[in-house]
Amino acid sequence: MAKLTFPKIGRMLVLLTASVASMLPIYWTLVNSFRSNTQIMNSFRLFPENLDFKNYASIFAVSSLPTYFLNSCITTGSAMILVGALALTCSFALSTYKFKFAKLIHLIIVAGIFIPSTTTMGMTYKLLQTLNLLGSRPGIILLYTSGRMALSIFLLTAYMKSIPDAIKEAALMDGCGPWRMLVSIVAPLSRNGLLVVMILTFIGVWNDYIWSMILLPSSSKRTLTVGLAFFRGEFFTDNGQLSACVIVGLVPILIGYLFLQDKIINGIASSAVKG
């Protein structure tokens, strides 16, 4: 027993330090969101003096934060649905039916994982301008959808290929057409893959900054991430209000993380190793 104590204490210390270091900046921001700028400037506190919601009230009254928040919800929700639907149908066709070009199409799509979106920023802007989609919600939703497609199809086809052919052939015997095959056999059996794809899309799109900044120049459609970065200029002098803005932007992600923690962690980890 005594021999085990030293490594055990060491491990505990590492656990503790790692947890504190990971949460400190967010916690500190939460504490500051309840404090006034003068209080923040004067002293470091582990707990706020009192639970003062003044910062929250003033950012909701003065700024366009609610609009940005709603924009982020609409954009992210639409992209999730579109990515889910398109990746599901396409992966289904590629993984279930055997035809000459299936492998080639799969290869071309998956090769897209190696094209970073920064490469195409200029021409994508020009493309959306030509199509009259610049600054519009459909434009950016289609763009996000296309950007998530390579990874999503890569992950979903992997899940779908693990469904035994015998199950699909049995369904054929019962007279299943392609549509019934997708809805009642393949989709339910690969729902974990679909969930991972939707979670990754949620995190990727909700957190995206670059495309929202480039493609949505008008403030009425602007998403929360770009709105937050703008506040950095507007409220530069008021650390309390800045902190409150950050906390509001974190809420949806944190709620999702609280409930789907294991799925999120495992989904992201497995997508990295497979990719």
């Binding site: 900046p25 923040i40 937050l228 506040f231 800045l242 999120i264």
Partner: peptide, 20 residues
């Protein structure tokens, strides 16, 4: 879970936190 938390936060929120 704590270690993974910073990863799912957006770059702009993280930048705001670090600005302060």
């Amino acid at each position: 879970a704590a270690l993974f938390l910073p990863y799912i936060i957006s770059s702009s929120a993280m930048c705001l936190i670090f600005t302060v």
